[in-house]
Design a protein around this nucleic acid. Structure first.
Lengths: 108, 108
DNA sequence: TTCTTAATTAGCCTTGACTCTAATTAGACT
DNA sequence: AGTCTAATTAGAGTCAAGGCTAATTAAGAA
């Protein structure tokens, strides 16, 4: 899971809305595309952004692609964000959790 | 709390690192700036992005500005992200939590 | 094969993000 | 006042994101 890709993917209202919809269950690309006032190619790039972050997966059934949420990556992202934003109680856990701790790049 | 601003603010490694550092306690702008290989004006824009999202607050003490994390907004953001990415058990809670549920914009 | 539907790719344009150097404000000290 | 340090603003350049129309691929149906 690449947090950068996930945050980039989440940083658009349409893409967040797609995530929210897919939480209720899978949906087809065309079906989702109808819900927003953008062209289908634009929707295609939104799907690509979400796929690149591995937040959604698509399965082709004939001519239709059905997207579903990738719960694993969603939870990994939550964990990473919790690690970043979650409160620390008393700054006790320096090397707290799953992801990389702060890695500064000091002067060379 | 504007999720868009928060996600925009988090979508940069330096800014995420600043958040991580401020979790350990307040830090001065100049002190933080030294930790990265970018110019001070660039750091200033990063601080601005974080301030615009209200993730950090700065207090001027003479000529020095000390930044500290805004834990309230951080937790609100976590809550909103949990609402978005957190698992739903069985898609039972349609109108689940604090933030706005899906608001589609159907064809006019 | 030809037609229709679903989705993506290609090409283009506009806007916003990120970075820099140079100049400017703001405060403290001599 | 003059000067030093801390931080921001101004201006400019590069690059990625987001959007469109038009063209292309892929699959199924006539």
């Amino acid at each position: 899971m690449k947090l950068t890709e996930v945050l980039k993917a989440l940083n658009h209202p349409i893409r967040r809305d797609i995530i929210a919809r897919l939480k209720d269950g899978p949906a087809t690309a065309g079906g989702l595309a109808k819900a927003y006032q953008v062209s289908k190619p634009t929707m295609s790039t939104h799907f690509s952004a979400l796929k690149e972050a591995d937040l959604i997966r698509g399965e082709r059934d004939g001519v239709t692609i059905t997207y579903h949420l990738n719960a694993t990556v969603a939870e990994e992202a939550m964990s990473a964000l919790m690690d970043l934003l979650g409160h620390n109680d008393a700054a006790a856990s320096k090397s707290s959790a799953t992801s990389n701790s702060r890695k500064p790049e000091p002067s060379p």
